[in-house]
């Protein structure tokens, strides 16, 4: 019953996250070693032998920040789609429940109404918590995207319009300048908060999968209960909807506490 779109969006978003992690991995170490991201980008040898090489490396650094900005933007976009699809999928499951045959004895109908109400309440809570996670990760990723592209553009502008004097002393001085700022900007924009955003996303993802499976299980159980008309045996859970959703609600509480502490 869980829409395929849910799993598709999850896979796409995971891939984008992996790409961003791969792109940013070891950036500071590489920068420290040799103001260059060439090992990250193309695996080239990083030895500097001429002014021309200096210019090339300066351009590569700008390209790196440009690419990283784009990758952060893609993860922001794909994770947003994932969160939205998750909320929609939970709603779609609710609608499925509404389709259970209504030609049931009155006492069962009353129980069903209570059960639906509980499920709807759960969906609202779940959506709100997903929104919290979405807002946090979006803010972090969009900020990184913005800072990185601005920094890449500033570097490009300097290289193209300012005309750096083509001598080793100037190149070296400018590289030192960029090394200092690249490290600072990287740490400021993509260190602590990005790791929290990864954690928040991972936690939201794990819980969304669990919750979808749980909702799916409940729908199947409800359909079975009506299919076999053995209310006394198979529909026992309807007698106490609150109890039936207790575990799921406590899962939401755990998730919310986790997000509150983390963010």
């Amino acid at each position: 019953y869980v829409p395929m779109k849910f799993y598709d969006s999850l896979r796409t978003s995971d891939r984008s996250k992996q790409e961003l992690q791969n792109k940013l991995r070891n950036f500071l170490e590489n920068l420290q070693k040799n103001l260059t991201t060439s090992t990250l980008l193309s695996g080239l040898d990083t030895s500097i032998s001429s002014t021309q090489n200096h210019f090339l490396k300066l351009q590569e650094l700008s390209t790196f920040f440009h690419d990283a900005s784009e990758t952060a933007g893609l993860f922001a976009r794909d994770s947003e789609i994932f969160y939205e699809v998750t909320k929609n999928s939970s709603y779609a499951l609710l609608l499925k429940l509404r389709q259970v045959p209504m030609a049931q004895p009155t006492e069962i109908k009353i129980l069903l109404t209570n059960y639906f109400a509980e499920m709807e309440f759960f969906h609202i809570m779940f959506s709100e918590i997903m929104d919290e996670a979405l807002e946090y990760t979006q803010n972090v990723l969009r900020a990184i995207q913005k800072v990185f592209i601005y920094y890449a553009d500033a570097q490009r502008y300097i290289l193209q319009d300012w005309n750096l004097k083509p001598n080793m002393v100037c190149c070296k001085m400018y590289m030192d300048f960029l090394q200092l700022y690249s490290a600072q900007i990287f740490k400021c924009a993509a260190d602590h908060e990005l790791n929290i955003a990864y954690d928040v996303y991972a936690m939201a993802e794990t819980n969304a999968k669990y919750i979808m499976r749980q909702l799916e299980f409940r729908i199947q159980r409800l359909f079975n209960c009506f299919l076999f008309k053995s209310y006394q045996i198979r529909c026992q859970f309807l007698l106490n909807a609150e109890h039936d959703f207790e575990k799921l609600f406590s899962k939401l509480e755990e998730l919310e506490t986790y997000f509150d502490i983390k963010t």
Partner: peptide, 22 residues
């Protein structure tokens, strides 16, 4: 806040500024 508004002008030292034909 990561990138100062007057970057790179305000952050460059004089000797580095002299390395450019603005």
């Amino acid at each position: 806040d990561c990138l100062p508004k007057d970057f790179p002008h305000g952050q460059m030292q004089k000797d580095l500024k002299s390395c450019f034909y603005f």
